[in-house]
Lab assay of single mutants.
Amino acid sequence: VTTYKLVINGKTLKGETTTKAVDAETAEKAFKQYANDNGVDAVWTYDDATKTFTVTEMV
């Protein structure tokens, strides 16, 4: 189990959160659900070296 981080650069929601998951795909599903629940529709990137997902909402 690995800890993954999500950085949110949204128009109305900004911040960071983490989740523990067995792999990046599982973490991504959890983070996308979190973003969807909070109304963030954005572009996703992932950095495997830092285990960090970044979501940037387009203006």
Rank of each mutant, 00 (worst) to 15 (best):
G39N: 11
A21P: 01
T2G: 06
D37H: 10
V7P: 01
T19K: 05
E57W: 07
T26S: 11
K14D: 07
K5H: 09
T2R: 08
L13E: 11
K14R: 13
T18P: 01
N9I: 14
A42Y: 13
T26I: 05
K20R: 11
N9Y: 12
K20N: 12
E28R: 12
T45P: 00
D23A: 02
D41T: 09
A42K: 05
M58K: 10
M58C: 13
E25H: 11
F31D: 01
T52I: 04
L13Q: 08
T18W: 14
T45W: 06
T45F: 09
T50K: 07
T50W: 02
Y34S: 03
A24L: 11
G39P: 05
K20T: 10
V40S: 04
L6C: 12
D37E: 14
V22N: 07
A27P: 01
D41W: 10
L6H: 01
K11Y: 11
V43H: 10
G10F: 15
V59N: 11
D41C: 12
G39M: 14
G15T: 14
V43I: 12
V59I: 11
Y46D: 00
T19W: 10
Q33Y: 05
T2S: 11
K5Q: 04
K20W: 10
T2D: 10
N36E: 14
Y4D: 01
K32N: 03
T3A: 04
V1D: 09
T50G: 02
A27G: 00
L6S: 01
T2A: 09
K14A: 10
T50C: 03
F31W: 02
E16L: 06
T18Y: 15
V55G: 04
T52R: 01
T17N: 05
F53E: 00
K11E: 12
E16H: 09
V1M: 13
K11H: 14
V22E: 08
A35S: 05
D23H: 03
N9T: 06
A30T: 13
G15V: 15
T18F: 14
E57D: 11
T52A: 01
I8T: 04
D41H: 11
N36T: 14
E16V: 12
V59Y: 12
K51T: 02
A21T: 03
W44Y: 02
D47F: 02
E57A: 05
T17L: 14
E28A: 12
W44R: 00
T18K: 05
T54S: 05
E28G: 07
A24I: 09
E25M: 11
N36S: 14
K32M: 09
A24S: 08
A21G: 03
T3W: 06
V55Y: 07
V59W: 11
Y46W: 02
A30C: 13
T26L: 05
A49V: 11
F53T: 00
A30K: 10
T12A: 09
Y46P: 00
A21D: 01
T2L: 10
F53L: 02
D47H: 04
D23N: 10
T54H: 08
Y46T: 00
Q33W: 05
E25I: 10
T18G: 02
E25Y: 10
V22Y: 09
T54P: 00
A35L: 15
T17I: 12
A21L: 02
T26E: 11
E57V: 05
F53A: 00
K32Q: 09
N36R: 14
V7S: 03
T3G: 02
D23E: 02
T56L: 07
E16W: 11
G15D: 11
K5S: 05
D47T: 03
T52N: 00
T12S: 11
A49C: 08
V22P: 14
L6T: 01
A30W: 13
A49L: 11
G15W: 15
T52M: 02
N9S: 07
A27M: 02
T52Y: 01
N36K: 15
A21M: 02
V7G: 01
L6V: 03
K51A: 04
T54A: 03
I8H: 03
A27K: 00
T26D: 07
V40I: 14
T54E: 04
W44Q: 00
V59G: 12
E16A: 06
A30H: 13
T17A: 13
A49F: 10
F31E: 00
A30G: 03
A42V: 09
Y4I: 02
A49M: 11
E25K: 11
E57L: 05
T18Q: 09
Y46M: 00
T12N: 13
W44C: 03
V43K: 08
T54W: 11
V7D: 02
T50M: 04
V40D: 04
E28Q: 11
A24P: 09
T19P: 01
Q33V: 08
F31G: 00
D37W: 13
V1W: 12
T3D: 06
V7F: 05
I8R: 01
T26A: 11
A27L: 02
M58H: 12
L13M: 08
F53K: 00
G39E: 06
D41E: 13
D23G: 02
K32V: 07
T19L: 12
D48P: 11
F53I: 03
A35H: 09
T50L: 06
N38H: 14
E16G: 06
T3R: 03
K32L: 10
K20D: 11
V7Q: 04
D47K: 01
E16Y: 13
Y46Q: 00
V7I: 13
V22W: 08
V40W: 14
I8N: 01
M58G: 10
T45I: 08
Y4S: 01
A30E: 12
T26K: 04
M58W: 11
D37Q: 14
L13K: 05
Y34K: 03
D37V: 13
A24V: 13
T2C: 13
Y34E: 03
E16I: 09
K20M: 12
K51I: 01
K29T: 06
T17C: 15
T45K: 07
K29L: 10
T18H: 11
N38F: 15
K14W: 12
E25G: 07
W44D: 00
A35T: 12
G39W: 15
F31P: 00
A24F: 14
V7Y: 07
N9E: 06
N38Q: 14
Y34W: 14
Y34H: 04
E25V: 10
V43R: 07
I8K: 00
A42P: 09
D23W: 02
K20A: 09
T12V: 13
